[in-house]
Nucleic acid binder design. Structure first.
Lengths: 230, 230
DNA sequence: ATGTTTCGTGACGGTATTGTTGCAGAAGGG
DNA sequence: CCCTTCTGCAACAATACCGTCACGAAACAT
């Protein structure tokens, strides 16, 4: 996947070296030797990726990245910082400025190309803030969190719904019939004992997380989730 | 926390005994001697909790509970049943009728007050829609809607996540690589063409809902969801 | 028009998830 | 203490879902 790459590097030798490597890999390289030049290029043609040296005469690469991140047109463009020293503080500063990745000098061409490829793959467009509606169903960014929770706890769909129901109806005893209605659905034909098995599976899935003994069984009645097990 | 309690008990001596105890604890007690009387009281003023004797002349306490559960206004009100003998069958019947707890006669005033306090406390989370926390994960009633949406549209997990991503990133073209990162996960190893198949499946699942042509393909680039198909 | 790339789509095997069943153990009732 | 009922649990079969591939259609470049 060839891409238009804007390379911002003040040292001619290094600039040439990098540019040749990138072009050899099929990319198209636009060159700039300082922040002002880079901004000029960006104004006329938006590149697919920005490769910015940290140390630049005048405006630093870091400041350039920060500035590009504040403009609407350039906000989406991935940025890779080239830096000689990559201390933890530098990494944090780079990320805070909006960079997507950093490459520490000296670096092999292979590594640089790998980073470029990764960044181009990874970057996701900014999420729309407004909730979207479809078929009378409103979906907002919070939804991601839900599925995140499910995967984080490594629960099957039914187990997760079961747990969620217990958490939103804690401290109460629910009969198997009630659980089937609420978790499975009102109109499903399932054996009541099936609930037992899923309770078992949920308990087992919850053990490694240290949340043991959360769900207690009430003989003859059903199950209950207690926040503070006696 | 003082509460308005409706006591339904036909035997005057027991009724008085209980009422005095409750009032001594700070509660306000309304009395009824049968189901008809109780329903009359409920119509005029909704109590915070119902204390119903199982054995009542005419309509039984169990039938009364069941009836109260079917009416929208009284559905949320906690019910405690007073019963002489609590066999397994009785417990099940009580739960199915919608009772929140049982107190078996004879009982100590302390026990009754404890149960009342517990029931009032348990009911709170459900009514206030409070989010619950577990393992650092916050789950709120929103979650139900999400899974509801998934089941309403009859989508598989991946299809739903794919659709959700498109909806929250509408009007933008997403490459297959980006979709893999965002919908599947950053570190999964799957063929890019797999996206095609899931797009296909999602489209097919969306057809019956009349939401056709939602996802358009951009040749050489990827896919895009357009709110207003041309 | 022709060749090349890209996409749609059906089919297939692999894996995960689900619902059911049977049996052993636990809990209560008498 | 014995007997009945209920629950824990493992194994099983059915199903749903997923990723991959192959082939044809469509779009594009020359």
């Amino acid at each position: 996947m060839p891409a238009n790459i804007l390379l911002v590097e003040d040292e001619p030798a290094i600039q040439e070296l990098i540019a040749v490597n990138l072009e050899h890999a099929g990319h198209h390289v636009i060159r700039a030797k300082d922040a002002e030049g880079a901004l000029g290029v960006v104004r006329s043609a938006l590149p697919d990726l920005l490769l910015i040296d940290w140390m630049l005469p005048g405006i630093s690469g870091l400041a350039l990245a920060r500035q590009l991140r504040q403009e609407e047109r350039t906000r989406q463009i991935p940025i890779i910082l080239l830096t000689a020293r990559a201390t933890e503080a530098d990494k944090v500063a780079g990320l805070e400025a909006g960079a997507d990745d950093y490459v520490t000098k000296p670096f092999s061409p292979r590594e640089l190309l790998a980073r470029i490829k990764a960044v181009l793959r990874r970057r996701a467009p900014q999420m729309t803030d407004d909730p979207v509606e479809l078929a009378g169903l409103r979906l907002d960014p919070e939804t991601h969190r839900v599925f995140g929770a499910q995967r984080a706890l490594d629960l099957g769909p039914t187990e997760f719904r079961l747990l969620h129901f217990f958490m939103t109806h804690a401290e109460r005893v629910h009969s198997r019939a009630q659980l089937l209605d609420q978790v499975w659905g009102d109109h499903v034909f399932v054996e009541e004992r099936t609930v037992d098995v899923h309770i078992r599976r949920l308990r087992k899935s919850l053990e490694p997380s240290g949340h043991d003994r959360l769900i207690e069984t009430v003989r003859g009645a059903g199950y209950r989730l207690t926040a503070s097990p006696a």
